[in-house]
Design a binder for these strands. Sequence first.
DNA 1: TTGAATATCCCCTAAAAGAGGGATTTTTAC
DNA 2: GTAAAAATCCCTCTTTTAGGGGATATTCAA
Lengths: 207, 207
Amino acid sequence: MISIFIVDDHPVVIEGLTSVIQRLKGHQVIGTARNAIDAIDMLKKAAGDVLLLDIDLPDISGIDLCKKVRNEFPALKILGISTFSDRSYISRMIQNGAHGYLIKSASQEQIAEAIASVMAGKLYMSLDMAHLLRPISVVATDQLPQLTKREKEVLQHIAAGLTNIQIAAKLFVSPSTVDTHRKNMLTKLQVNNTAALIRLAVEHGLV
Amino acid sequence: MISIFIVDDHPVVIEGLTSVIQRLKGHQVIGTARNAIDAIDMLKKAAGDVLLLDIDLPDISGIDLCKKVRNEFPALKILGISTFSDRSYISRMIQNGAHGYLIKSASQEQIAEAIASVMAGKLYMSLDMAHLLRPISVVATDQLPQLTKREKEVLQHIAAGLTNIQIAAKLFVSPSTVDTHRKNMLTKLQVNNTAALIRLAVEHGLV
DNA sequence: TTGAATATCCCCTAAAAGAGGGATTTTTAC
DNA sequence: GTAAAAATCCCTCTTTTAGGGGATATTCAA
């Protein structure tokens, strides 16, 4: 008997998923929660085998919750769920330890298959999602020189197309400061202009 | 009986894969090729069910071959294979129609599983590869303003960190020309500096 | 064959970024 | 409590980009 816990802020979705899962042989829903705090509390009492986790939650994002759950309940398999439009979050879920991703409009068969896949220790990803994925750069992200918090902030704004002066205004610092951060990033990452910097940043998921 | 065709320029790899597959019940290797031309020729005679396709081929890249095979043999399931270091090509394979991706160091079990997955119409992706994937931008790439061939060339070089003068030297044109292309791209893509341009380009896989 | 798109080249000015340098304060970690 | 790291700020000078403008040859499709 596979025990499933559902976290989603939409009661309708919880209803729907629960009824689909109840119809599956050998599967049971052992609990549901509508926000992250409740979810953590309830999981502490009974974690089950598979967690269906919505990406949009009222308190903290499903992505952060995913990371937290992975740390506290390493045995629990996590399947991210969301509507189609949230696709840009899929991989952040996976990078934070999710074992697969399911769209809310999935069929009963797909849901069963997804659960079976993650229980078997595999990644579940529907084929129509596959083409939306592209690999991050060959150089592992964790062997990149570390950027400081402030540098990352500046980087975001550079990537958004802002100039040093605009960034300075946003961060309430002098343009000189922004310029210094920018130069330090160029040095750290061994590139010599913005184009190469942004390319590196986007390819490594820093932006 | 599942028929498998192997394309790889390394005889050792063909040997290895063949012997692994021969040991699997219900699987047979119906042909092998060491380059794309031979592969196409032989596939026309007997295509089989699954194509194990190396990314590095001497004549045309596995990625292009993948696209070609998809058009000519739509029923054939394609599993990309490569060494670990080629991971940056994985998704280009998938975007060109591959049904999964296998590393050459995969175990017999993983190979069997991959074949079974693609035969079942599913995507096969080993979990340790999953974290290397990130979704492409939410905005569909095909609804982006079209760049011309020359603009794309210039874009590549900008993304590589070259200045207009350096690009001009590479393309044997005047720096003014490069500058014009650059400005046209900024206008077309509605961004106002290089940072935003490169971000857009990388996120949409233009680079 | 003719017009639109593409590619090529030039001018100008102003703004922004890159490459050096140095310096101080504030945080953080040991 | 101290040393290292991070964040802040400033200077000069040069190179590169951005934002205007305009012009001509070529390619390509209708």
